[in-house]
């Protein structure tokens, strides 16, 4: 009947969102790509054309390989801790016990703590070599306290970030567990399937999709970890805890090399897109229209 008009109205309703996001994507990204071919120091303009020089410098910078490796170690480390821990915690929280609601609140709370708070609380109140709780604990059992952030900076940051993301994995996997068919479980139990085989053949396959989603979404965020490094180690000592985002931040806003920072930005976008490609396929498969 009035389909023509309806279509027009629909387009009108969608276009503000589309236009805004299109602009947000094209303008900064286009500018980043353009800057990446310029020799451009923020303090000493004007910029001049330089070709792919920024990319060569970025990729051969002594910080690049450590930053790339640190990024991968950080992402993988946190993923392993949160996925395995999340499955175990979800199984536990899905059992029958007193005070389920409160325990669940306790477990998910770290996710709501802003990254700068969690980083500083861990840094000062737990990992500090003199006054931190870990130092107290070490002394209490007669050990020498450890300066976590200078002797094992990357591991310390992995712990902080994993603490923040474990609740996320737990919550999603718990939601998925709750939709598991309990009749099927009971049937398997009656047929004599043990706890382990029920877990491997029923629970785990049921969780596969959620695990995929957890891994992919976390990867997107973990590739971008910034605040935790910014307020604790500032990437050091040396490059020991510099990841790609922090490296690019350092180039752009600390060394004022906009050209090389932009080249790094382009490379970060490429890395994120590889991950995004898989995430989009996983999400797209679940979207029925």
């Amino acid at each position: 009947m009035a389909t023509q008009r309806a279509h027009k109205a629909a387009r009108l309703m969608i276009s503000p969102s589309v236009i805004l996001l299109l602009a947000w994507m094209i303008i900064p990204l286009g500018t980043t790509i353009y800057f990446s071919f310029l020799r451009y120091n923020i303090l000493t303009p004007p910029p001049s054309w330089t070709g792919v020089e920024n990319y060569t410098y970025f990729l051969t910078d002594p910080a690049f390989i450590p930053a790339l490796v640190n990024t991968l170690v950080l992402v993988l480390g946190v993923l392993i801790i949160t996925t395995v821990g999340g499955i175990l915690l979800a199984l536990l929280l899905n059992m029958d016990f007193w005070g389920q609601g409160i325990v669940r609140i306790l477990v998910i709370s770290p996710f709501f703590v802003m990254p700068t708070v969690s980083a500083l609380v861990w840094k000062n109140m737990f990992m500090h070599p003199v006054n931190g709780l870990f130092a107290h604990l070490f002394r209490a059992v007669g050990l020498q306290p450890v300066d976590f952030l200078s002797t094992m900076p990357l591991l310390s940051i992995i712990i902080m970030v994993a603490w923040a993301w474990l609740p996320f994995a737990t919550l999603i996997l718990l939601t998925a567990l709750q939709s598991l068919d309990s009749e099927q479980m009971e049937a398997a139990e009656m047929d004599g399937a043990g706890w382990l085989s029920r877990f491997i053949y029923l629970t785990l396959p049921h969780l596969t999709r959620s695990i995929t989603v957890v891994v992919l979404i976390q990867t997107i965020f973990l590739l971008a970890v910034f605040a935790e490094i910014y307020v604790t180690t500032a990437g050091g000592p040396g490059y020991a805890s510099t990841n790609i985002p922090f490296f690019i931040y350092n180039l752009s806003l600390k060394q004022f090399d906009a050209g090389m920072g932009a080249a790094g930005g382009v490379i970060a976008v490429i890395i994120a897109n590889i991950v995004a490609f898989f995430l989009m396929r996983a999400v797209g498969k679940n979207l029925e229209l």
């Binding site: 996001l21 990204l29 500018t31 980043t32 997107i220 590739l223 976008v269 994120a272």
Partner: peptide, 14 residues
């Protein structure tokens, strides 16, 4: 959704 995948640091400079 794909626009959400763009890392912020990629557009920090501009």
């Amino acid at each position: 959704l794909s626009t959400k995948m763009m890392p912020a640091v990629g557009v920090l400079v501009p």
